[in-house]
């Protein structure tokens, strides 16, 4: 169970773009990547997705902006727990902002939140005690986002 969660997190880490990493940065060399890195990157990516969607579907803007703000707050808390700033030069890819069908947008975002909830729940299960409460709140928040996107 724990091993499985660890393997999944490692896979998530591999998906984070490596551009901008300084190959000769001593600090990076001496410290292995924190297991929370993929989750922090995911929070930043989810924030970007919701902000883009808020622009594409003005009718949903208020709801989506509140969710985007929550993802930003999650990313900030995760960065604090990691104790290092985000890897530089890797801004989250901003998805297209073409006007879109609200139902499609909500369905896609719900799916993204579901994946995010599952990732946060796995991280919570595998985390040391001092990180469990933060990760639990993030998993629960992502579940409430799915509800808010209904």
């Amino acid at each position: 169970m724990l091993l499985r969660a660890g393997a999944l997190l490692a896979l998530g880490g591999a998906a984070v773009p490596l551009t901008g990493c300084d190959l000769f940065d001593r600090d990076d060399e001496s410290r292995p990547p924190d297991p929370l890195e993929p989750l922090a990157a995911e929070a930043t990516a989810l924030e970007a997705r919701h902000r883009a969607a808020a622009t594409a579907v003005p009718a949903l803007a208020e709801r989506l902006t509140a969710i985007a703000d929550a993802h930003r707050a999650h990313a900030e808390e995760l960065r604090k727990a990691i104790g290092r700033p985000a890897p530089s030069g890797t801004p989250a890819a901003v998805p297209s902002v073409a006007p879109a069908d609200p139902d499609t947008v909500r369905t896609e975002l719900r799916q993204a939140e579901q994946e995010g909830r599952d990732n946060a729940a796995k991280a919570c299960a595998a985390a040391p005690a001092e990180r469990a409460a933060l990760l639990g709140s993030i998993a629960a928040a992502r579940a409430t986002h799915m509800e808010a996107l209904k």
Binding site: E62, R63, A66, I67, D69, A70, A73, H74, E77, A121, C124, A125, L134, G136, S137, I138, A139, A140, A141, A143, T144, H145, E147, A148
Partner: peptide, 28 residues
């Protein structure tokens, strides 16, 4: 965690029923 999540979901639904916005909080 399942219990925490269920409570957070119900809080969200009650906010919607009550007309409170936003219906979510960042850290349930």
């Amino acid at each position: 965690l399942a219990a925490l999540t269920d409570c957070a979901l119900r809080a969200t639904r009650w906010r919607r029923t009550a007309g409170v916005t936003p219906i979510t909080v960042p850290f349930p």
